[in-house]
């Protein structure tokens, strides 16, 4: 099985520990992981802001970088959703604009092989107990694109429930958006901040010491809001909890 890590640009630049955690975790599970260095950003910020044409070179780059791998694992719900949901749309629109089938074909090659991390663990590897140890109270925020575009469902919870020492706390209003939304966070900063403040209130109410998601972009917004509020709740990507063990705790 040839597995490539698509670390995503935000993890690469700001949260390398998440990428490192995925490598640790997958290797612990006996998976040989590769990191194709030609990879870059999935193009979501451009696409979601309306710059579809500016996204196109990145679709080509992504297809080329991951050519030949059986599976592409993405520790980000929204980036995985970008590839799976929006790449085919970009391809179809380019074809409709009379610019050929190349993008559509690139999308076709990527879609069936692209997995969000929890999907890869539960659906491909068939594991929910990954041998993790994280002796803390944790609340889980299901990020919107993972929840609604990918339909991750219970996968993240199933994985968390098997973590030794971890106590999962129910998050009120869990399925409500945290207010990040990419460029929305700055274009509509007032509404975004109000949503973030409400999300953080719910997180504080759980009494958990960590809040966990499958998306560091949302976590950047939640964490930044928590930090500004002087909260002690620790924002942590699910991969980092799953990588944590008794021998090498997070």
């Amino acid at each position: 099985m040839r597995v490539a890590l698509f670390v995503t640009c935000i993890n690469d630049a700001l949260y390398p520990r998440t990428g490192q955690a995925v490598v640790t975790l997958l290797e612990r599970l006996g998976v040989e992981v590769d990191f194709p260095q030609e990879q870059s950003c999935c193009g979501q910020p451009q696409f979601n802001t309306g710059y579809r044409h500016a996204t196109e070179p990145l679709v080509h780059r992504c297809a080329a970088a991951f050519e030949g791998y059986d599976h592409i694992v993405v520790p980000s719900g929204s980036c995985a959703a970008m590839v799976r949901e929006n790449y085919p749309r970009i391809g179809a629109k380019a074809a409709a604009e009379g610019r050929g089938q190349a993008l559509a074909r690139a999308a076709e090659r990527l879609v069936p092989r692209t997995w969000e991390l929890t999907e890869f663990l539960v659906d491909v590897l068939g594991v929910t107990d990954v041998g993790a140890y994280y002796p803390h109270t944790v609340t889980y925020h299901p990020t919107c694109h993972g929840l609604r575009m990918l339909g991750l469902g219970e996968r993240p919870r199933k994985l968390l429930e098997q973590v030794e020492g971890l106590e999962l706390r129910e998050l009120g209003g869990a399925e409500e958006c945290c207010g990040f939304g990419g460029t929305f966070a700055v274009k509509n900063a007032a509404v975004s901040s109000a949503m973030g403040a409400d999300k953080v209130r719910h997180i504080e109410k759980t009494g958990a010491s960590s809040v966990c998601t499958v998306d560091n972009s949302c976590l950047m917004h939640i964490g930044g809001t928590l930090s500004r509020a002087g909260s002690r709740v620790r924002p942590v990507h699910l991969a980092e909890i799953l990588a944590s063990t008794r021998e090498a705790p997070l």
């Binding site: 630049a13 390398p16 990428g19 490192q20 990191f35 260095q37 966070a185 274009k187």
Partner: peptide
Amino acid sequence: GPGSAWTDTRDVPRVPPESFRDWWR
């Protein structure tokens, strides 16, 4: 400036000393 749209209510994340890419290499 324009960055304040973010930082009026949220802290910016710390830039890590090393990117994932560099760590891998």
